[in-house]
Amino acid sequence: MRDPRPHADKPERTSLETYGKGFEEYLQSPLQPLKDNLDSATYEVFEKDPVKYISYENAIAKALVDRIPEESVSDVTCVVMVVGAGRGPLVEATLKAAQTSGRNIRVYAVEKNPGAVNTLLNRQRDEWGENVTIVSSDMRLWTAPEKADILVSELLGSFGDNELSPECLDGAQSFLKGDGVSIPCSYTSHLSPVSSAKLHSLVSCAIDKEKAYPLHQFDIPSVVYMRNMYEIAQPKVCFTFLHPNWSVPVDNRRYICLRFTAKESITMHGFAGYFDTNLYDHIKLSIEPTTYSDGMISWFPIFFPLVTPVYVKQGGEIEVHMWRVCNSKKVWYEWCLTKPITTAIQNPNGRSYWIGL
């Protein structure tokens, strides 16, 4: 793997993606630039997901049953920590899982967004009671009063790791028991070459005159509701992360070279990124097209544009290199082609886009 390259200081953080103020608004705005803390309208939209939280509830219930055998139900209380609790849908799923499984639990809900913490405190007072402890803190900085049996999170982005899930969970796992369970326990990103003149045109127009690099917009991946897109080849596995990760040292840098064969002659404009995740046991969620979780609205694909469209012949080989680069302060992606032509590396050293740690 190539070592991460030094990154010059930037006057401001370049953001990745935001989901907008409503689902309909989101669908109408195909390229979405990230906020550090989500607003209430965004929380409200994705709390209505009809698939995600039911899957989480089932995964937590299965983990509780596996954790506490039937003969120990009355004697054992399982400690569950929900990290990145938002406004509480995962806390709600955890409490329902305890009820359906018949297990006793003690819940910690850890959240750094002050607005969301206020909602959590209100729900604790009105709905949950003293069995749920609200913690206003970054999960990486909190000192837990006890070790957790189960660590629950929903930190995944459209490319799996692009919202710092590995870094956040690596920090949070310090208060997970040695035999503790992380939900999700793994996630994998996928990549496929796509043709979309519409998306390429939108990226071309997304110019920020304050940026020093004139083609900065092509260095920035965007979350996209892909209505005007043709997939040139089936997606392939890109990066995988496992949790808990007890490796010493933990290294979340990644590099891969993927090769695709074009289904037909066409112009390629970039790459679509997806992910799937194994929550626990056999319970999974996915936005990868061949395994998509029907009805889920919480995530949409991510688009990695090429600066210049590339013509690919039917049966022709496409070779793309993708890096996930980390240093002590930032995480970013870099990518380039080596077939059918060789292109310059995009977003070198996090030139135009990075995620602050």
Results as ranks from 00 to 15, higher is better:
Arg106Met: 07
Asp126Pro: 04
Leu90Thr: 02
Leu155Glu: 00
Lys112Asp: 06
Val80Thr: 04
Gly129Lys: 06
Asn113Leu: 06
Ser136Cys: 11
Asp149Lys: 07
Pro145Ser: 11
Gly84Thr: 03
Asn162His: 07
Lys96Val: 07
Glu71Lys: 12
Val152Ile: 09
Ala85Asp: 04
Arg140Asn: 08
Thr100Arg: 12
Tyr108Arg: 08
Glu111Ile: 01
Glu70Lys: 13
Lys96Asp: 08
Arg103Lys: 13
Met81Asp: 14
Asn122Glu: 15
Glu127Arg: 14
Thr133Met: 07
Met139Ile: 11
Ala98Thr: 03
Ala116Gly: 04
Gly84Met: 02
Ile105Tyr: 00
Val132Asp: 00
Ala109Asp: 04
Phe159Asp: 00
Asn131Cys: 09
Thr94Ala: 06
Gly129Pro: 03
Glu92Tyr: 06
Leu156Glu: 00
Pro89Ala: 12
Ser72Ala: 15
Gly115Met: 13
Val76Gly: 03
Ser101Trp: 04
Asn104Met: 13
Pro114His: 13
Ala97Met: 02
Ser153Arg: 02
Asp75His: 09
Gly160Ile: 08
Trp142Met: 05
Thr143Gly: 10
Trp128Leu: 04
Glu111Phe: 01
Asn118Phe: 14
Ser165Glu: 05
Trp142Val: 03
Ile150Cys: 04
Val135Met: 14
Val110Phe: 08
Val82Tyr: 03
Ser136Phe: 09
Glu111Gly: 01
Glu71Asp: 15
Asp138His: 09
Val82Leu: 09
Val73Phe: 10
Ile105Val: 15
Val110Gly: 08
Asn118Met: 15
Ser101Gly: 09
Gly88Ser: 15
Met81Lys: 14
Pro114Gly: 09
Pro145Phe: 10
Leu164Ser: 10
Glu127Ala: 14
Val132Lys: 00
Cys78Trp: 01
Val110Ala: 09
Leu121Ile: 07
Val117Pro: 01
Val110Met: 08
Gly157Gln: 02
Val79Trp: 02
Glu92Val: 10
Met81Trp: 11
Glu70Thr: 14
Glu127Leu: 15
Val91Ala: 07
Met139Leu: 15
Leu120Gln: 07
Gln124Ala: 11
Gly86Thr: 07
Met139Asp: 03
Ala109Asn: 04
Val107Phe: 01
Met139Lys: 05
Ala85Ile: 05
Ser74Arg: 13
Ile134Thr: 03
Glu92Thr: 13
Asp75Asn: 11
Val80Cys: 06
Asp126Tyr: 13
Glu70Pro: 05
Asn118Lys: 15
Ala109Ser: 10
Lys96Thr: 09
Ser136Ile: 04
Ser101Phe: 06
Arg123Cys: 14
Ile105Cys: 04
Val79Pro: 00
Asn122Ala: 14
Ala85Met: 07
